[in-house]
């Protein structure tokens, strides 16, 4: 376990070094955008919650956005995986044929 943690720690450190510069690759540089979401017209709920957060604390919003995206990615991934497996296809092996 400890070994795994150490590995994970090393990986996280690597990611922190590596990733900031990769961001540039993710698209053209973008200036800060000052937008206020109009929460007056939103009924309380999910939309209102995100809009409030966007207006109030963009940092928490950013953390939330990444966590939720990753979470949703994995949940949907596992879910779709279950569905795919239930079709009875063999999803663990494949031959490499180039031509």
């Amino acid at each position: 376990m400890r070994k795994r943690l150490a590995k994970l720690g090393g990986f996280i450190a690597l990611v922190q070094v590596v990733v900031p510069s990769m961001l540039l690759a993710a698209g053209p540089k973008a200036a800060d955008l000052v937008v206020v979401a109009d929460t007056r017209v939103l009924a309380p709920g999910l939309n209102r919650y995100f809009a409030d957060l966007y207006n109030t604390d963009i940092l928490v919003f950013a953390v939330w956005a990444v966590v939720l995206t990753a979470l949703m990615g994995s949940v949907l991934g596992v879910l779709m995986d279950k569905i795919m497996v239930s079709t009875g296809l063999n999803l663990s092996k494949r031959k490499i044929i180039e031509h």
């Binding site: 109009d38 929460t39 604390d57």
Partner: peptide
């Protein structure tokens, strides 16, 4: 943390 302070608009 998100719901505690909601800014007025």
């Amino acid at each position: 943390a998100g719901s505690a302070f909601a800014a007025e608009v």
